[in-house]
Design a protein around this nucleic acid. Structure first.
Lengths: 225, 225
DNA sequence: CCGTACAATGATGTGTACAACAAATGAAGC
DNA sequence: GCTTCATTTGTTGTACACATCATTGTACGG
């Protein structure tokens, strides 16, 4: 077993990335629901540092639109209004399709292995639906699909918009258990269809399937709300 | 003459926005060329504040990919490698066209006035080319055109990518005086063509013209380099 | 003359105390 | 009982001193 060098000598950059990634996950997996106040002091204590470096993370998250700091009041996880949400989803549709056009590449052996593992997790969720595991799987699958394009700026933007909006969709899914079973079922079909498209090497089709599912999941959310 | 309330009571937020906008402009207008080191102490002194709030601005700019801080070395204005630049321009092409599709709106009276003023500035540059004024006009025109779409996330992304890449293009234009005259000429035609398209209410055509010019200007830069 | 170790220097990163601000609280006045 | 305002409390924002890191110059040994 090799030793992770970042574990032994956690540089400033590593600490920052770690905290940023951790807090972002908590926000996007609804550990911190929209409206939640994030205590600088409490978080700093949890990570074993002072407020100063933690604030740096919060400033970054604020730049990504995930939190908002108000002087004398607190730092809050942002909510997204229906109007902005609609606009963002319209944009995500187009961008999803773009990933199949700009610098699209077929999965390599590693990615195939990862996709198969994700598919297995999806199957497992069918028989035993679980909100939290569904949220994690959804995120992991999205991140994995981004590896199908080599266009880095496009990747960054898709990821950014995903983190900004999917948590709102998740919130509405988490609200009722019935919808969760439906969503898991739909999601498993999406995974299945996309893998089929990738198996025959049709990257554009894969992106179109993804586009369709983004569109439909937003529509289901709109009706549910 | 009304009094600007932000002048009398500059809150923390106002100060932050002001500094962020100012430094971003300096980077994008090449006052701070790629590779330049930004001294936290010097900038803090210039704005009359301590390093702490200034660092907040730098962290934001780092999140936008305009600067990069290295512990013990300095904070530097980023350069963009040709590979990433190519990918970004490919993306900007598609996004420019998207602005003509997602939430496109015709200019209102205020915007028309602004566009006419920009056109006049462009004409003035034809007879008296000036690198700095060209850079400012180019930026102002781009920002003005963004008002043609109501899709806020799309706006943000286009603006972000513009600030990230146009300074690199400007750098190559600034390198030789001959190219500047050419670029000013091409730019004036772009302004003219887009205004014509807008006059007949063809928003999609306007976005296509913009797309074409982004593509061609990148091609000219590639050959010039 | 060359290479290496090491100290000096200057940069960003961090910890801490305090200021500025907004909301909650309580008592005084009507 | 209700309103109003001063006070208290808790939060983010700021200033400053210090730690940490990377570079550079220098002296020493070969």
């Amino acid at each position: 077993m090799n030793i992770d060098p970042t574990e032994l000598a956690p540089s400033a950059r590593d600490r920052f990335d770690r905290m940023h990634s951790e807090i972002r996950s908590r926000i996007c997996l609804l550990d911190y629901a929209p409206g939640t106040r994030l205590s600088e002091e409490a978080l700093a204590a949890e990570f074993g540092i002072s407020r100063t470096p933690l604030r740096r993370v919060l400033v970054r998250l604020e730049g990504e639109g995930l939190v908002q700091s108000v002087h004398g009041v607190g730092t809050f996880v942002t909510d997204v209004k229906i109007a902005e949400l609609t606009q963002t989803y319209q944009l995500r549709l187009e961008l999803a399709e773009l990933t199949g056009k700009l610098g699209a590449v077929a999965p390599d052996a590693t990615l195939w292995q990862e996709l198969r593992a994700l598919s297995a997790r999806s199957k497992a969720l069918l028989t035993d639906p679980d909100a939290r595991r569904f949220a994690e799987l959804n995120m992991d699958f999205f991140i994995a699909l981004l590896k199908l394009t080599t266009n880095e700026p496009l990747k960054d933007i898709c990821e950014r918009l995903y983190f900004k909006t999917t948590r709102i969709w998740l919130k509405s899914v988490f609200a009722s258990k019935i919808d969760l079973a439906d969503e898991v079922d739909v999601f498993d079909r999406e995974v299945h269809d996309i893998l089929r498209a990738l198996e025959i090497g049709d990257l554009h089709a894969a992106s179109l399937i993804q586009r369709a599912h983004i569109s439909m999941s937003f529509e289901r959310m709109r009706r549910g709300t």
